[in-house]
């Protein structure tokens, strides 16, 4: 069974006094396998949050359908095994973390004592065990984001929907959350998350979808999308002077750092031939690092219509 199936999902909003039509989502189709981490990438206004809102029953689709673990999203019980962290999440400031977890647990049909039994472990897993009895109004932004994850986990969901979970977190917070997402995957959970922080998505996603102006422009495993093609090489040489290396005429860029000469080679260069020339000139090759396209470069090339490159390269999508 697929964890998430989306078929031709579309959403048209009517805005302003005259009801001007605005297409937020147009014919989006994708599926997410159970147990994978699926990244949903796109610029602001691409339709990511609209997709989350439709899947979570907060907005109604104009057309199309979607299922979570085989249950249509319009059916009761579709979100019984789902957890959701909204973008820029707000919570009731007057409640403590423990009280709020109890409230959300009851909304998922859990009994009070079951929620109470789980609360401690959940808050511990997101690093909020010591703040369990503090009111949400006293929490920092990072703590609120971590609480957001906790409330999404309250019913031990099989599928997690995280809308921009890494936004606003400091580097240790981001690292902690990335580790938590990877841990959830290890425990068999499916994680569907959107992010602007592409390096994080690249680090943890099994597959990604790139969304632009409400439509899918690329989708698949990161390795396949980025390809194996080497963009350039970085060659590190010791025992040679930068001028001597420059005279070899092997690279497009040369710099020296702590006795090591760093040479950038074109992706079409023959590394074996270059290494032979360095050695024959008395230099010692310390490292040869192939440089491939990053997700950020891929995203800028394929996705955001507002950034450079437009939609060039990928004509797929729905």
């Amino acid at each position: 069974m697929k964890a998430i199936e989306i078929e031709n999902l579309a959403k048209v909003y009517r805005r302003g006094f005259w009801g001007t039509r605005f297409t937020a989502l147009s014919g989006l189709s994708l599926s997410v396998e159970e147990g994978e981490i699926y990244g949903f990438i796109g610029a602001n206004g691409a339709g990511k949050t609209t997709t989350f809102k439709i899947l979570m029953g907060i907005a109604k689709p104009t057309s199309g359908s979607a299922r979570i673990l085989g249950t249509d999203i319009s059916a009761r019980g579709a979100r019984m095994k789902a957890g959701y962290l909204p973008e820029e999440s707000y919570y009731y400031n007057y409640l403590t973390a423990r009280e709020l977890l109890r409230f959300y647990g009851r909304l998922q049909g859990m009994r009070g004592r079951d929620v109470a039994a789980r609360s401690g472990a959940i808050l511990e897993s997101v690093g909020l065990a010591e703040s369990a009895d503090a009111r949400l109004g006293e929490f920092s932004k990072g703590m609120r984001q971590r609480f957001g994850i906790a409330q999404a986990l309250v019913n031990d969901p099989a599928v997690l929907f995280l809308d921009e979970p890494l936004t606003g977190l400091d580097p240790p917070g981001r690292k902690g959350l990335r580790d938590l997402i990877l841990d959830l995957k290890r425990r068999g959970k499916t994680v569907f998350f959107s992010s602007h922080i592409l390096s994080d998505a690249e680090a943890i996603c099994d597959r990604i979808a790139v969304l632009d102006r409400g439509g899918l422009v690329a989708e698949g495993p990161i390795g396949k999308l980025l390809g194996s093609k080497v963009k350039s090489y970085e060659l590190q040489i010791s025992g040679a002077q930068p001028d001597a290396v420059k005279d070899l005429g092997i690279g497009v860029g040369i710099r020296s750092d702590a006795g090591i000469v760093h040479v950038t080679l074109d992706g079409t260069a023959d590394p074996d031939a270059v290494i032979d020339r360095v050695r024959s000139a008395g230099g010692k090759v310390v490292a040869l690092i192939p440089v491939r396209e990053t997700l950020e470069e891929f995203f800028m090339r394929s996705g955001p219509s507002g950034a450079h490159g437009g939609l060039g390269g990928f004509g797929g999508g729905a």
């Binding site: 907060i58 979100r79 959701y84 909204p86 999440s89 919570y91 909304l107 049909g109 409330q151």
Partner: peptide, 10 residues
């Protein structure tokens, strides 16, 4: 937007 966390539950 606290309603998001309510309606997204069952």
């Amino acid at each position: 937007r606290t309603i998001y966390t309510i309606l997204s539950k069952d």
